[in-house]
Amino acid sequence: MTATATQTFTVIGLTLDVDSTELLIAAVLPGPVADQIELLATSEDDFTRWAEEFDAPDPDSAAALAYEHCRSWGDEF
């Protein structure tokens, strides 16, 4: 069995402000570019703009990790 290579992906989206456990993903970009993304001042009433990096074998896995991160992070409140 071969090991799946991982790479860094940057997930960009919106989190729901009510409890921060819901994430709406806008894009999954290859590479560690979260530091280069300038999140504009939010104008949404119920959402916060969000970007985070995840190591995963593919973009879909990075998105799944982002969903899980937001669900577990929101549980802390």
Rank of each mutant, 00 (worst) to 15 (best):
Met1Ala: 09
Thr2Leu: 12
Ala3Lys: 12
Ala3Asp: 10
Thr4Cys: 00
Thr4Asn: 03
Ala5Arg: 11
Ala5His: 04
Gln7Gly: 14
Thr8Phe: 01
Phe9Cys: 01
Phe9Val: 03
Thr10Glu: 06
Val11His: 00
Gly13Pro: 00
Gly13Leu: 05
Leu16Met: 10
Leu16His: 10
Leu16Ile: 05
Leu16Thr: 08
Val18Asp: 06
Asp19Arg: 03
Asp19Glu: 12
Ser20Leu: 15
Thr21Arg: 15
Thr21Gly: 07
Thr21Cys: 11
Glu22Lys: 09
Glu22Ala: 12
Leu23Ile: 06
Leu24Ala: 11
Leu24Arg: 08
Ile25Thr: 11
Ala26Ser: 14
Ala26Trp: 00
Ala27Tyr: 11
Val28Asn: 00
Val28Cys: 13
Pro30Ile: 15
Pro30Lys: 03
Gly31Pro: 00
Val33Pro: 01
Val33Glu: 10
Ala34Arg: 14
Asp35Ser: 15
Ile37Arg: 01
Ile37Ala: 00
Ile37Lys: 00
Glu38Lys: 07
Glu38Cys: 04
Glu38Phe: 05
Leu40Cys: 06
Leu40Trp: 00
Ala41Ser: 07
Ala41Leu: 13
Ser43Val: 15
Glu44Leu: 15
Glu44Trp: 11
Asp45Val: 08
Asp45Thr: 06
Asp45His: 07
Asp46Asn: 06
Asp46Gly: 11
Thr48His: 09
Thr48Cys: 07
Thr48Ala: 08
Thr48Ser: 14
Arg49Lys: 12
Arg49Met: 06
Trp50Cys: 03
Trp50Met: 12
Glu52Gln: 12
Glu52Tyr: 10
Glu52Leu: 11
Glu53Trp: 01
Phe54Ser: 01
Phe54Val: 09
Asp55Tyr: 00
Asp55His: 01
Asp55Met: 04
Ala56Lys: 00
Ala56Phe: 02
Pro57Leu: 13
Pro57Cys: 14
Asp58Ala: 10
Asp58Gly: 12
Pro59Lys: 03
Pro59Trp: 02
Asp60Thr: 15
Ser61Arg: 08
Ser61Asp: 14
Ala62Glu: 08
Ala62Gly: 03
Ala62Lys: 02
Ala62Trp: 03
Ala63Thr: 04
Ala63Ser: 15
Ala64Asp: 11
Ala64Thr: 08
Leu65Trp: 02
Leu65Met: 10
Leu65Ala: 15
Tyr67Asp: 13
Tyr67Arg: 10
Glu68Ile: 05
Glu68Met: 09
Glu68His: 14
Cys70Tyr: 02
Cys70Val: 10
Arg71Gly: 07
Arg71Pro: 01
Ser72Thr: 14
Gly74Gln: 04
Asp75Ile: 00
Glu76Asn: 09
Glu76Lys: 08
Phe77Lys: 04
Phe77Leu: 14
Phe77Ile: 06
Phe77His: 08
